[in-house]
Amino acid sequence: MAFHAIKIFCRKPGAPVLGTALLGLTLAIPPLPALAQQETASPGYVLGEGLELGRTGVRIGGYGSAQWQQMDYEQTPASVSHFSLFLWSDIGPRLKFFTEWDNQENHTADHDHEYEREGSRFLSVERLYLDYSFSDNLTLRAGKFLTPIGRWNQLHADPLVWTTARPLLTRDLFPDNVTGVMAMGNTEIAGRSYEYMLYHSAGSQLQPDPTQTPFDHAYGGRLVMPLGDTLQLGISVARFEQNPGRPGPFWKHGEYKRLLAMDFMWAKHGYEFSGEALRRQSSAGAAHSEHGSFIQGVVPVWGPLSAVGRLEHISMPMMKQSLQRSVIGLNYRYSRAVSIKLENIHDSGPVGARSGLLASASVLF
């Protein structure tokens, strides 16, 4: 496979180079027929669907992402931001196994810069669970899995989302993962089909993410209602105990959080409009409550090229005022498995809010 070196020249952070840089990216991309030949060159393997290990029934896959950023006052050289490995297997007609291990790097666009460990790497167990399916109406899951709050957190693999930066509320207001048990499936209420998830964790996480404040004893649920073929509405509730590993005035030992979130997704002919809103209350009092929201739109531009725009808002006790973020970018998606992204982020609100450019290339294999 031929690799293309792509250079993006910037005069200063936030300079209007988005269109010029994307043109360079587009010209460097091989034509789609060439990609199709690459994907089908190996019989029995399709890019993005994993590879079976002999005749074991076990498949291996994953994704890798390279990321470059130039935020205010600093520039981070291109680096491998994620290398995630999946292993999964159907052990029997009802029992399934899945695990994801992710070697990832912290970036300023994903975390509050005051608490992050910029440039550090860590290996996380994102998922490690067994599923036992009784029927379409009931599947039991045990192990470590993604917390079913909103849509983004459950489908945040880099090649599958539209932007390099995650929405702020999906990083800061609830734990990404939970270790415990979950019941999920479909049920019919008043003649309408609903998807449900109910989960519980009696203790802390398996190998927790060091960038997140630790938590214990989480439980909650999610309900998704389809409204026709193009629109879905979701509601999520959760409760978990905060267990900070660092001293500070904003967290207390034994503090628990109650969370309510709503989300929607509309998609048709390549156009998408989605959003999430979340409010988190604390047992420590109203002064410790947080809330956030975002809306995002996707518009097809040409073939696999789409324009993406997102508006975000988040309010947390550690901030003297609310943070607003706007994201405007372009996503060139060869296929479901390969995408190149370029976006401009602009923050306003608290002192120290950052703005700049992000670019990434991701492959699901």
Rank of each mutant, 00 (worst) to 15 (best):
Arg258Pro: 02
Leu85Val: 12
Pro214Ser: 09
Trp88Leu: 05
Asp112Ser: 06
His200Met: 06
Ser322Pro: 08
Ser42Tyr: 07
His217Trp: 01
Gly270Leu: 01
Gln70Met: 05
Val80Gly: 09
Phe215Trp: 05
Val237Arg: 06
Val351Glu: 13
Gly245Leu: 13
Thr187Leu: 13
Gln70Tyr: 04
Leu364Gln: 15
Ile328Ala: 11
Ala261Val: 02
Gly185Met: 03
Ser322Leu: 03
Gly228Lys: 02
Gln70Glu: 10
Ser274Arg: 13
Leu227Ser: 12
Gly150Cys: 08
Arg141Gln: 07
Leu323Arg: 14
Ala78Ile: 03
Ser42Trp: 03
Leu168His: 07
Phe273Lys: 02
Leu206Trp: 04
Thr26Met: 12
Asp229Arg: 08
Arg333Val: 02
Pro300Trp: 03
Leu227Trp: 06
Phe134Cys: 02
Val181Glu: 04
Gly119Gln: 07
Arg258Asp: 14
Gly356Tyr: 00
Ser236Gln: 00
His113Glu: 12
Ala2Glu: 13
Ile328Cys: 07
Thr230Pro: 05
Gly248Trp: 00
Ser193Thr: 12
Tyr73Arg: 14
Ala353Glu: 11
Phe240Gly: 01
Ala109Pro: 09
Thr163Gly: 01
Val363Thr: 08
Lys7Arg: 09
Ala34Thr: 15
His107Asn: 10
Leu130Lys: 08
Tyr194Arg: 04
Trp266Val: 11
Val125Gln: 07
Gln207Gly: 11
Gln232Trp: 05
Tyr256Met: 04
Asn331Tyr: 04
Leu22Asn: 01
Ala353Asp: 13
Lys320Trp: 10
Ser306Asn: 03
Asn137Tyr: 02
Gly254Ala: 02
Tyr115Gln: 08
Tyr194Asp: 04
Gln75Ala: 10
Leu32Met: 10
Thr108Met: 13
Met71Ala: 10
His4Glu: 15
His107Arg: 14
Trp162Arg: 04
Gly228Ala: 00
Gly50Phe: 01
Gln37Phe: 02
Pro93Arg: 14
Ser124Asn: 15
Leu22Lys: 01
Leu198Pro: 05
Arg117Trp: 06
Asn177Cys: 05
Leu140Trp: 05
Ala359Pro: 06
Ser315Asn: 09
Ala202Phe: 09
Thr213Asn: 07
Asn103Gly: 11
Ile6Leu: 14
Asn243Trp: 06
Thr76Arg: 09
Arg192Gly: 03
Leu206Ala: 05
Pro148Asp: 00
Trp251Tyr: 11
His291Leu: 08
Gln38Leu: 10
Ile235Asn: 11
Arg336Asp: 13
Ala34Asn: 15
Arg166Gly: 06
Val363Gly: 01
Ser204Asp: 09
Leu223Phe: 10
Lys252Leu: 06
Tyr63Trp: 01
Leu51Lys: 09
Ala183Thr: 15
Arg280Ser: 08
Leu27Tyr: 07
Ala165Cys: 06
Gly50Trp: 00
Gln232Asp: 12
Pro249Lys: 07
Gly54Ala: 09
Glu39Leu: 03
Glu241Asp: 13
Thr170Ser: 09
Ile6Asp: 08
Asp110Pro: 11
Ser81Thr: 13
Phe273Ala: 03
Gly203Met: 07
Gly92Arg: 14
